[in-house]
Every structure is written in structure tokens, then in C-alpha cells.
């Protein structure tokens, strides 16, 4: 591939990002770094500010304070941004009357990416047979794949995916997890957001957890489990009992208080739920209303 510019360092940094939407503080003093070579999960409850943060990284929204950098530079200053960052924000952001291949083609043209990349990425995501079909006829899963293809188009060292597993069947989820791990193994920085920890359980190496716009944790997966289990071991018996009853995720084992050999098996899901318990914007009540 003929690169116009050398790809810069594969990092995403945010420094003190803050954003209001009307009177709501969507993102509050968010600072983190995404480094290459691993899959970083960006997790938080719905409405926590994940999409807003990603949009600010891509220069779609302007932060009230703070800044976001890609490879040390602001996104809007990049001349061929698709070669620096590949992003999937909204799988439905397509014109329904345009063919899938043309949707990728204009993006390729805009950044001087050769047209053959379009065929390559469509092949990579498994849409080669439907390339010439109108995007409006695609199912949700196919649209997700098309969005992923768009992110891969520029062969960028930094990749960001907002809820990529939405609409994918189990086989598709497994495929994308493999894809993400493979991209990270190539030395790219991969940021994947989700509001379901179970999706990221086997994929993410590192986690950035946010809730109500604030950073709650910026740690490796192992450390998060340890932190959560440690807290649990110190809990009173009653509380451990209650949390044991709440842990429904597969692989979780309810334990009586104080037994340390259940530590490794605490699911990421539960650890995350405990962490974000207070920060959840939208919670169903006990009786399901």
C-alpha cells in the first residue's frame, strides 16, 4: 500500500474531556490512553458517555473542555484520517439506495485509498457476495459487517468500534472477537465499546470502565477481577450472600463468604456490575418495571 504519510504512533489519548448536552454532563473529566498491541474494552452502562467520547475522539463533537488525540494529534488535523483511525460508530449510517461496494468506494476515494481495498475488506468481513446489493436491503448483522469493513478500509493502526456485536449471531460474535484479537496482535490499538461485559469477556485485555461520564476504572481484566473479588472477600456475610444470589452469569459460582478459591471464577460481568452499580443511569427495578 502506498502510504501518503507514515502512520503515526498507534495510540488514543484523552485528556480531561468534558461535554455537556443541554444540562446533562455527558462526559466528565475523562482521561485515559489506549495503547497498541491489545484490545481495550470501553465499557459502561447505557448512557454512560461511551459514544460521546468516541465521537469527540473523531472530531464529530467538540468537547467543552479537554482534548482527544490520535497518535498524538487531533483528529481534525489529519489529512488522511481513515489511514490513521478506522472507526465504526453507527452501522445504520448508510444511504439505503447505495450499493455496499459504493459505500466503501467513496470513503476510499476520499482518503486516496486504492479501490482494490474495497474488495479486500468486503472479503474479509464476508460480504463479498452481496457487495453489489443496496445497503438498504441488508439485515442488521450485514450492516454491522459493512461498518466493520469501513473501519478496516484504511488499514489503520488505530481502530475504534462502538458496539460492534449488536445484531450479530453467535457465530458472528465469535468471528469478530477473533478479528479484534488478530488486529491487536498485529500491533494496532483497538478500542471496543460495549455495555455488555459478557461480550468482551474473552476478547478484551484491558478495560476502561466509565459510568455517568466519569472514569471508574482503567485497568487490565485480571486486575479488575482481583479488585472485585478482593472487595467481595471483605464484605459481610450477608452482602456476599446477596451478591452471590445476584450473580447469574455462566461460569459464576456462588460461594459462601470468605472462600478464596472462587476468586478466579468471578465473572467479569459481576465485577463490572458491582463497579458500576452506583453509576447506572437506567436501572430496572426488582419487579421488572
Amino acid at each position: 500500500m502506498n502510504l501518503i504519510e507514515r502512520p503515526t504512533a498507534a495510540t488514543i489519548e484523552t485528556h480531561g474531556l468534558r461535554k455537556h448536552y443541554g444540562r446533562t454532563l455527558a462526559v466528565n473529566d475523562l482521561t485515559f490512553t489506549v495503547v497498541p498491541g491489545r484490545v481495550t474494552g470501553f465499557v459502561g452502562p447505557n448512557g454512560a458517555g461511551k459514544s460521546t467520547t468516541m465521537r469527540m475522539i473523531l472530531g464529530l463533537d467538540t468537547p467543552d473542555e479537554g482534548r482527544a488525540l490520535v497518535g498524538g494529534r487531533p483528529y481534525r488535523g489529519l489529512r488522511t484520517p481513515l489511514r490513521h483511525v478506522g472507526a465504526l460508530l453507527d452501522a445504520n449510517a448508510l444511504h439505503p439506495a447505495r450499493r455496499a461496494c459504493d459505500h466503501l468506494l467513496w470513503m476510499a476515494h476520499s482518503n486516496g485509498i486504492p479501490a482494490r481495498r474495497v474488495d479486500e475488506v468486503l472479503d474479509q468481513v464476508g460480504l463479498a457476495t452481496v457487495a453489489r446489493r443496496r445497503a438498504g436491503a441488508f439485515s442488521l448483522g450485514m450492516k454491522q459487517r459493512l461498518g466493520i469493513a469501513a473501519a478496516l478500509l484504511g488499514d489503520a493502526p488505530v481502530l475504534m468500534f462502538d458496539e460492534p456485536v449488536n445484531g450479530l449471531d453467535p457465530e458472528g460474535i465469535r468471528w469478530i472477537c477473533g478479528l479484534l484479537r488478530g488486529l491487536a496482535a498485529q500491533g494496532r490499538a483497538v478500542l471496543v465499546s460495549s455495555h455488555l461485559m459478557s461480550e468482551l469477556e474473552d476478547t478484551a485485555d484491558h478495560l476502561i470502565v466509565i459510568g455517568r461520564g466519569r472514569l471508574l476504572a482503567d485497568t487490565s481484566v485480571r486486575d479488575l477481577r482481583a479488585q472485585a473479588s478482593g472487595g467481595r472477600a471483605q464484605a459481610s456475610g450477608g452482602r456476599a450472600q446477596a451478591s452471590g444470589e445476584r450473580a447469574q452469569a455462566p461460569g459464576a459460582q456462588t460461594q459462601a463468604s470468605g472462600e478464596r478459591h472462587g476468586l478466579e471464577q468471578i465473572s467479569l460481568e459481576e465485577a463490572y456490575l458491582r463497579l458500576t452499580r452506583d453509576a447506572t443511569e437506567y436501572t430496572a427495578t426488582e419487579d421488572g418495571t
Binding site: 460508530l89 445504520n92 439505503p96
Partner: peptide, 18 residues
């Protein structure tokens, strides 16, 4: 207007930020 209606404005401004 077609870009706003379909949300395509996102990819457009991502591809060409200026």
C-alpha cells in the same frame, strides 16, 4: 439533507474532517 437523515454525516466527517 440526505447525509443528516441517514446518519451518513458521521462517516462523511470522519473521512473528511474539515
Amino acid at each position: 439533507t440526505g447525509e443528516y437523515g441517514t446518519g451518513l454525516i458521521g462517516p462523511t466527517l470522519t473521512a473528511v474532517p474539515r
